[in-house]
Design a protein around this nucleic acid. Structure first.
Lengths: 186, 186
DNA sequence: TCGCCGAAGTAGACAGCGTCTACAGAAGTT
DNA sequence: AACTTCTGTAGACGCTGTCTACTTCGGCGA
């Protein structure tokens, strides 16, 4: 495996194990067994390396979506929604990195392509479910995606609310899906 | 004005003008006209100072909610939703700081108190609107708040989606409110 | 009034960070 | 065989947060 790929892999492992705060260029280089300046031979800077890591995250998100079980459009959409929240809960550090503009470069071509693809695939699922009278399915998709994203984000932030009330992401997701898809989807 | 308060004020201004990346302890100290070590006489560290700044942000959010115009519960709730997104759009850096666990300490008593109060006030508004058959109003509030939060977050992240489709926060919010409150709220 | 003590501010140091540059060797290419 | 390009190393620079003396000043008890 080339050094470039090893750096990406090492960074992903470090990210998963130690969190976003631990993915420093020097730390990645040390963990990969190269000198602190070596990463700059393969990436223009920290943002480019971390963008490559985030790209892998979006790619895995896309893969999950493509491996959805067969079923009605409505079932597929709810499964996709669950998979989004599951991904965030299962890979909190990666999820955080994927939306940290200060750490990655959203305009990186590969990253922009795969993140757009994630949204586009989701919009297709939404469009396949009828019932949103006349409004642009992509607008509905953006709204629903935002709802899922906020659910994941607030849960990662710490308990979805104050200490007085801490619902599980699953129960809150059920309410969200009810709101968008109607009660019959329970 | 005491040095402590001036540091908080200066940090808020720096945050609004230069963004989250510019609020460094040394930068704040320089802007406030004190030495780089002075802030540590008033705060245990960076997290405590930035927590005080974020507390002001949550406080303003709470104030906006308390100044809602009179109207039906449903109107009040939609106004609150708009005010949340408006706040994020109007104060993007502050909004970002308020949810950056690595920069602030969510367990800071004042911060925890006011952020919980924001949620509680919101939950009260949700509870006043009937129609969510039997489910805990606080759970509905958490779901709806997450939807608003995701809307704001994704908009700040860059256009709510890929470059192929970039709805305004207002139009997406309208869809979100439709989903939660029904079409008649348009 | 004197002495003192704690609070507040300063200046310097330290390790860690991202990034830049100079240098060394290895690998091809002509 | 000579030259160029790629890859990796080592050191430096300025920045960061934090720690540690050292000074300065204000109030308070004797």
């Amino acid at each position: 495996m080339g050094t470039r790929q090893r750096l990406i892999t090492t960074a992903s492992e470090l990210l998963a194990e130690e969190g976003v705060g631990a993915v420093t260029l020097r730390g990645i280089a040390k963990a990969a067994g190269v000198s602190h300046g070596a990463p700059l031979r393969h990436f223009s800077g920290r943002a480019e390396l971390l963008s490559a890591v985030a790209t892998q995250g979006f790619t895995e998100l896309l893969d999950r979506r493509k491996r959805l079980p067969d079923g009605s459009p409505r079932e597929q959409l709810t499964a996709a929604c669950h998979s989004y929240v599951d991904f965030a809960v299962g890979h909190p550090a990666m999820f955080e990195l994927m939306f940290r503009r200060d750490l990655i470069d959203p305009d990186e071509p590969a990253l922009a392509a795969v993140s757009s693809a994630v949204f586009d695939e989701f919009a297709v699922l939404v469009a396949a479910v009828d019932g949103h009278g006349g409004t642009d399915p992509r607008l509905v998709a953006a709204s629903l995606w935002a709802a899922l994203h906020g659910l994941a984000q607030l849960w990662l932030w710490g308990g979805l609310a104050g200490a007085s009330f801490a619902p599980s992401p699953e129960s809150a997701l059920a309410v969200t899906l009810d709101a968008y898809l109607g009660q019959e989807t329970r």
